[in-house]
Computed example of a mutant assay.
Amino acid sequence: MSAFVPMPAPATGRFIGAAHHFPLRVYFEDTDLSGLVYHANYLRYMERARSDMLRVAGIDQRATHEAGDGVYAVTDIKIRYRRPARLDDDLMVESRVTAFGAATCAIHQRVRRGEELLTDGEVSVAFLTQQGRPQRQPRPWIDIFSRLMTGEDINP
């Protein structure tokens, strides 16, 4: 009889102060013919990191969406590519809430390889009704963003 061996958990990030750090690795499917990470994949990396940041902070987007209470949508994005990433690179996506309003949130994100900055971007999102109209974010979420903006550690 063999002992039960738990499955490894998916990659997750964690907060260090107000910044969320999300690790990832570059796989072959992320690269283009030149062997560099295809530009659109940086947006995917940043999306994964933002989703993880909200989850780790205690914001349950899935439950809110399934209850019909609203969903986030990207309203604006600005990205700057500085250096390329390559196959097998270990990367870190750092995300930090830089502003928020009743229905909006702005997040600055950086993709690094070690200390080297590869990409950085500014992403704005709006909290929308099922009909696609802006609406107020849940009050507990505003409280979380406020704590993040002041640099309060929110790790459990």
Rank of each mutant, 00 (worst) to 15 (best):
146 S>H: 15
5 V>L: 10
22 F>Y: 10
92 M>D: 13
53 M>I: 15
148 L>S: 11
87 L>Y: 10
110 R>V: 12
93 V>G: 05
61 Q>R: 08
88 D>R: 04
71 V>I: 06
118 L>S: 03
130 Q>T: 10
143 D>Y: 11
15 F>V: 00
150 T>M: 13
128 L>C: 12
71 V>A: 09
24 L>A: 01
44 R>D: 03
31 T>G: 08
61 Q>L: 10
120 D>P: 04
12 T>D: 04
79 I>W: 00
140 P>Q: 12
81 Y>C: 05
22 F>V: 01
71 V>Y: 08
154 I>W: 14
63 A>T: 15
51 S>F: 12
129 T>F: 01
75 T>A: 05
130 Q>L: 13
156 P>F: 09
119 T>R: 03
14 R>H: 10
122 E>S: 10
151 G>S: 14
4 F>M: 10
114 G>F: 09
37 V>C: 00
69 D>R: 15
54 L>N: 06
116 E>V: 15
62 R>P: 03
73 A>L: 07
108 H>C: 05
76 D>G: 12
156 P>E: 03
14 R>S: 08
131 Q>P: 11
113 R>K: 13
6 P>Q: 12
104 T>R: 08
7 M>I: 08
107 I>F: 04
13 G>V: 08
52 D>G: 14
60 D>G: 05
138 P>D: 15
156 P>I: 13
108 H>V: 03
80 R>K: 15
51 S>P: 01
64 T>R: 06
131 Q>C: 08
52 D>I: 10
85 A>T: 04
88 D>Q: 03
12 T>E: 07
147 R>D: 15
130 Q>A: 11
129 T>V: 15
30 D>G: 01
109 Q>K: 06
9 A>N: 09
38 Y>L: 04
141 W>V: 15
146 S>V: 10
132 G>E: 04
118 L>N: 02
26 V>Y: 02
4 F>V: 09
48 R>L: 06
147 R>S: 11
123 V>F: 04
60 D>Q: 10
146 S>K: 13
101 G>P: 08
11 A>W: 02
87 L>R: 12
84 P>Y: 03
97 V>W: 01
117 L>D: 02
118 L>Y: 07
145 F>S: 00
9 A>T: 11
150 T>I: 14
68 G>F: 02
120 D>S: 11
48 R>E: 03
81 Y>G: 07
40 A>T: 06
151 G>V: 14
80 R>V: 15
57 A>F: 04
57 A>C: 08
65 H>Y: 12
122 E>H: 14
64 T>Q: 06
5 V>Q: 07
57 A>K: 08
51 S>V: 07
30 D>A: 01
75 T>F: 00
88 D>A: 02
120 D>I: 12
149 M>A: 13
119 T>H: 00
121 G>P: 15
55 R>F: 09
77 I>D: 01
5 V>H: 09
13 G>R: 04
61 Q>A: 05
94 E>L: 13
90 D>C: 07
16 I>N: 12
